[in-house]
């Protein structure tokens, strides 16, 4: 069956954070930050491996991270790391069946218990913590 016949949304649909509320935004941010951290890990391993080529190569690599662009990347990594951890803890607990509400008689207008206010609060707290950590990191890196 061709893709058009199957009408599957594909990656374009998967990464679209709009349409389905805060949980879908959190899903998108979790995936994005996960990929970002993976890219950072690979870059970090490459960066530290330069020490094998001697002191000059290591210093040369360090000078790259000590630029405003390098600092921006590190600030972003701090944010991704904090959000991914905070939201990841929420997901691990929820995926064990905790904090997703109790089944009951649904009543119109049918607000899903699994998308409850505690879940939303956890997402917002993860975002806020990430923002605070980024601000602190920026203060340290860009401060004199």
């Amino acid at each position: 069956m061709t893709e058009q016949f199957s009408n599957r949304e594909g990656i374009k649909g998967m990464i679209n954070p709009t349409r389905y509320g805060l949980h879908r935004v959190a899903y998108w941010m979790q995936r994005l930050s996960g990929l970002g951290l993976l890219a950072y890990l690979i870059g970090h391993i490459y960066e530290t491996s330069t020490i094998l080529n001697g002191k000059a190569a290591w210093n040369n690599m360090l000078s790259l991270t000590e630029t405003p662009g390098g600092h921006m990347v590190l600030v972003l990594v701090i944010g991704m790391c904090v959000f991914h951890t905070g939201n990841g803890i929420r997901l691990m607990i929820s995926e064990g069946g905790k904090g997703v509400g109790k089944p009951g008689q649904p009543e119109y207008p049918y607000r899903a218990s699994s998308l409850n206010s505690k879940q939303r609060l956890c997402i917002w707290v993860s975002i806020a913590l990430a923002a605070l950590a980024m601000m602190y990191g920026a203060g340290v890196l860009f401060g004199d």
């Binding site: 879908r24 995936r31 899903a112």
Partner: peptide, 18 residues
């Protein structure tokens, strides 16, 4: 991955994500 979109669109309040 608990994106919650299924529960967001369910017209009968089934809450599949839960």
């Amino acid at each position: 991955h608990f994106a919650g979109s299924c529960s967001n669109v369910c017209p009968k309040g089934v809450d599949p994500a839960m």
